[in-house]
């Protein structure tokens, strides 16, 4: 019988190693796996490369991981967020590297990484500083830039519901990068609000098939980043 559940967030992230590359779901606070991020801070892995859309807010979740000095490089589309100076300070002091990627190119690089496609051409960023040094090619009279697929050692994401096989349903715009990140890592770790038995989710409605998921941990009442920030919480 297949059962991908693990008991705690700490157990779920226990094998994340120094120097790992980690995809982290979320667009702003929607979909940010706050409890898995806090477990990762407690676990202590450092020199991490993170792949995420943003860099967190306040001093909780992703921003707290960065503030703790665990991240050496961010591959990111929009590392500026209201209520956070954590990334800004480390970037300006040269303590964190940034690879800036247009949001859609970031999504497609992750999708390709998960799909076994090493690279693709896109019109996005042609003629801009973000295409400098990259191969250009013309198709039917229009210029495109070559972008590489992205893969990671780990993906950590949040979903709403899982079954024991790891089939996932999401909540509204918290879905964002999670379904593609789940496909593009060696190990995909998911926190969900509830776990149900195999067969309890209609197969027609499943968003992420369980083949892409390795570990599921139940966090019944996940914290919302904005509420932690408003309450002045700083993790740890």
């Amino acid at each position: 019988m297949i059962d991908k559940r693990v008991n705690t967030a700490h157990e779920a992230v226990a094998d994340i190693f120094d120097g790992a590359t980690i995809m982290i779901g979320g667009f702003g606070e929607a979909g940010s796996p706050v409890e898995l991020l806090h477990a990762l801070i407690d676990q202590g892995a450092s020199d991490l490369t993170i792949i995420s859309n943003n860099t967190g807010s306040g001093e909780v979740g992703l921003a707290a991981l960065i503030k703790a000095g665990r991240v050496s490089k961010a591959i990111c589309s929009y590392p500026r967020t209201a209520n956070s100076t954590v990334f800004t300070e480390l970037y300006r002091s040269g303590s964190i590297k940034l690879e800036l990627v247009p949001q859609g190119t970031l999504a497609e690089r992750i999708r390709c990484g998960g799909a076994g496609v090493p690279a693709f051409y896109t019109a996005t960023a042609v003629g801009t500083p973000l295409a400098e040094g990259k191969e250009l090619r013309e198709f039917e009279g229009k210029k495109y830039v070559l972008e590489r697929g992205l893969r990671a050692d780990f993906t950590i994401i949040k979903a709403r519901t899982a079954d024991v096989h790891g089939n996932l349903l999401y909540n509204k715009t918290a879905r964002n990068f999670a379904p593609i990140m789940a496909t593009a890592a060696n190990t995909t770790i998911v926190q969900v609000q509830n776990v149900v038995d195999a067969g309890d989710i209609d197969p027609e409605t499943i968003v992420t098939p369980g083949i892409f998921v390795d570990r599921v941990v139940c966090v019944a009442q996940p914290a919302h980043e904005s509420e932690l920030v408003a309450a002045g919480v700083s993790y740890p």
């Binding site: 999504a107 497609e108 992750i110 909540n171 379904p179 980043e225």
Partner: peptide, 28 residues
């Protein structure tokens, strides 16, 4: 509002009848 129903500016929004959610690769 729902903190997980937001727009690209990260403000809370609503979904109209007939709306659909999708992941980032489909969005782009």
């Amino acid at each position: 509002g729902d903190p997980e129903l937001i727009n690209a500016g990260k403000r809370q929004v609503t979904a109209m009848p007939g709306a659909a959610y999708f992941h980032h690769a489909d969005s782009f």
